[in-house]
């Protein structure tokens, strides 16, 4: 166990009473997820987390019947966790948070505007970015230029679904992107609808973690697209995702009362 490993174990098991710990550790030369029970050796912890641990948490959570799970979370993961709690997917009382501040490099990669977790246990808080250069350039373009840009980008898509698989808040049980009504079953690229439907579906959940963009083998600037549509959501309804209280405007009436849940 390295020093960060010791510190994280101490925080999780001794100080905060966790039964399990989800983190990232050194595995055969690169980073892998570690899920250990109290008393087990967590190994050599790495803080350069290569994906969203909350995505992994969401996938193992249904199989974890009891116990408290400590998770190492950055600010974006904290927001994703809040969205999952708000939507009743995860019980917040069973999760113990160990806050990790992102490095300058990570902040830059995401052009992140909100990089500091509400409780910093590891690392030192960095300064957020003000704007995403590409969003700015795209907003200044004419509609035709913008369409050309995105058509050229989306043509590179090979429909690998890495963007949705790695997204911490892509949570529907039945994905419409797997329905041939919207996305042709055969052939690539999947067309523009694929990306617009994703943008719409994530508009009230996306935390701007940048995982979709990092996972995309075609290097499509998906995070920029998300940042643009998140800004629209904010302009239109004053809504920002990432807390446990604010209900999505898409789930309320014009007066703000909760709508009935929709059937699939």
């Amino acid at each position: 166990m390295n020093d960060p490993g010791k510190e994280i174990s101490r925080l999780a098991f001794d100080e905060r009473g966790a039964d399990y710990l989800l983190a990232v550790r050194e595995e055969y030369g690169n980073a892998g997820p570690a899920f250990v029970a109290k008393g087990e050796d967590v190994g050599d912890i790495r803080t350069d987390i290569p994906y969203q641990l909350v995505t992994i948490l969401r996938k193992i959570y249904p199989y974890m019947e009891d116990g408290k799970i400590a998770v190492v979370i950055r600010r974006c993961e904290e927001k994703a966790l809040n969205e999952l709690i708000k939507r009743g997917i995860i019980d917040g009382d069973r999760i113990i948070r160990i806050g990790l501040a992102c490095s300058e490099g990570q902040i830059e990669a995401c052009r992140c505007t909100d990089p500091v977790p509400s409780c910093v246990d590891i690392g030192s808080p960095g300064k957020g970015w003000n704007e995403d250069q590409l969003s700015k350039e795209l907003s200044a373009m004419s509609s035709e230029e913008r369409l050309d840009f995105w058509v050229a980008q989306f043509r590179k898509c090979n429909k690998c679904y890495a963007c949705s698989t790695n997204c911490p808040v892509c949570v529907c049980d039945h994905c419409v992107l797997e329905e041939c009504t919207f996305v042709a079953e055969k052939g690539i690229p999947p067309g523009m609808a694929f990306h617009l439907i994703r943008a719409y579906h994530l508009s009230d959940k996306c935390t701007e973690c940048g995982e979709c963009e990092r996972s995309c083998p075609a290097h499509i600037p998906l995070l920029t697209f998300r940042k643009m549509t998140n800004r629209d959501m904010k302009d239109l309804y004053g809504y920002e995702s990432g807390d446990t209280e604010t209900v999505s405007p898409l789930l309320t009436t014009l007066e703000g009362d909760l709508l009935e849940e929709e059937e699939d």
Binding site: L138, L147, A199
Partner: peptide, 13 residues
Amino acid sequence: PLLQKILDEAGID
């Protein structure tokens, strides 16, 4: 209205 904004961002009037 949200859909309209998303379409605008993609360059669809």
